[in-house]
Nucleic acid binder design. Structure first.
Lengths: 215, 215
DNA sequence: ACAAAAGTGTTAAACATACACCCATGT
DNA sequence: ACATGGGTGTATGTTTAACACTTTTGT
């Protein structure tokens, strides 16, 4: 029995919707193993920072944003998940609005979640797990707003659901549900300069709790 | 920035129903800090074992059982959660049938979840979190069977829900729901030597998936 | 005969689903 | 005038929630 300490890292799955697709942020690995492959952004935790602080730090380093949806996902710790040494990784997942983000140059880029290339280490299975959790979150909480700017149309919101679940929803039933649950409030403004009927802009209703069964 | 490795432990929240109450297994701390206080069973991970293997090992050490419901709960890593040094703990929660367990002597004992004494370290908040997750699991999966023996009556099953949620359910509606979802099958046997009408014994229906919306 | 838990149906309200047309704007 | 997406209502089936009495056994 060797009770030697393993290394501990934090990896962050950063989801956004870009070009109408669910995408995630990866960095290109600079060294072996998996040199050149895309990998989840991550890093070792500082001995004095909390796990969530580490996740926030990594998120900010790659995207410049801090005040976004972020939650712990799962801790992966198979002895051989890193071929070099024992590394336990505490994963977090984040949802960002693509317009708020400036991807910091160092080989970070967006990859579509469905149809992504192979990722380094066990990051593929981490992403699969994160994607399941993301779907669950949209079903049962108001997390969908995190993909959107402060004001959005009903169609914008519906598109978030359609993108994440990769299926369509009935417009009338969708709107009825959102209004019934009182998830949004009318901002009193409408979209402008659109070559069709202007749409009402909504904002999230702050009085609604985090947990609400939506679908 | 010090990238020194923290210690990593696994703690296990072991739930059972005993004397009609939801209880959890704690061990008494033998050393400072928190000497004498009840604490979650746990231990350092061996450098070669997976996190789940470590959790299974700890579970077996304390209860003698291995083949039970066990899932990762959350990873707690605040820098000051252990006053001595940086310790990150990956928590797991387990559900056991009290009759299958022999609590191994070394100061391990059952404590009621509602109405428990103060626990060592941040274990109180870990237990609160585990209790929320337990309720969620019973609502949305078939985890309730894990509290019960292989055969049980509808009333036994209903009592599990009533104990965990600390409220009562309507007997007719409860039975209709369970039967509708096809969660159980009739074993063809009935309770014996009960001083009232014998009850049908059921077993879990193996064809039912893990995820089912129950309540 | 009594005590104790098992077992069973109906009704009303809420919710989910499927479905098609008119509206307001820019070009 | 046309193209584009915005916006709305109804009917049907399903699910939930509330509610009380009879049955079977042991003592």
């Amino acid at each position: 029995m060797a009770f030697e300490d393993p290394a501990v890292t934090v990896d962050v799955i950063i989801f956004t919707i870009k070009d109408g697709r669910l995408q995630l942020l990866c960095v290109q690995r600079e060294n072996e193993p998996f040199k050149g492959d895309p990998a989840l952004p991550g890093g070792f935790i500082d001995i004095n920072e909390s796990l969530e602080t580490a996740a926030t730090r990594i998120l900010e380093e790659k995207t410049g944003v801090t005040d976004v949806y972020l939650e712990q996902l799962y801790t992966f710790g198979d002895p051989d998940r890193d071929p070099r040494k024992r590394v336990i990784t505490v994963s977090y997942f984040a949802i960002v609005n693509h317009d708020d983000v400036t991807v910091s140059g160092d080989d970070a880029d967006w990859y579509p979640v469905r149809d992504r290339p192979d990722l380094a280490f066990d990051h593929d299975s981490i992403v699969s797990y994160a994607n399941q959790r993301l779907q669950w979150k949209l079903e049962y909480t108001t997390a969908a707003f995190s993909f959107l700017p402060e004001q959005f149309t009903m169609s914008d919101l519906q598109k978030v659901y359609e993108t994440v679940f990769d299926r369509s929803f009935d417009k009338r039933n969708f709107r009825r549900k959102i209004k019934k649950l009182d998830l949004v409030e009318d901002t009193g403004t409408k979209t402008e300069n659109v070559s069709h009927r202007p749409a009402t802009l909504y904002r999230p209703n702050k009085d609604v709790g985090e947990i609400v069964e939506i679908l």
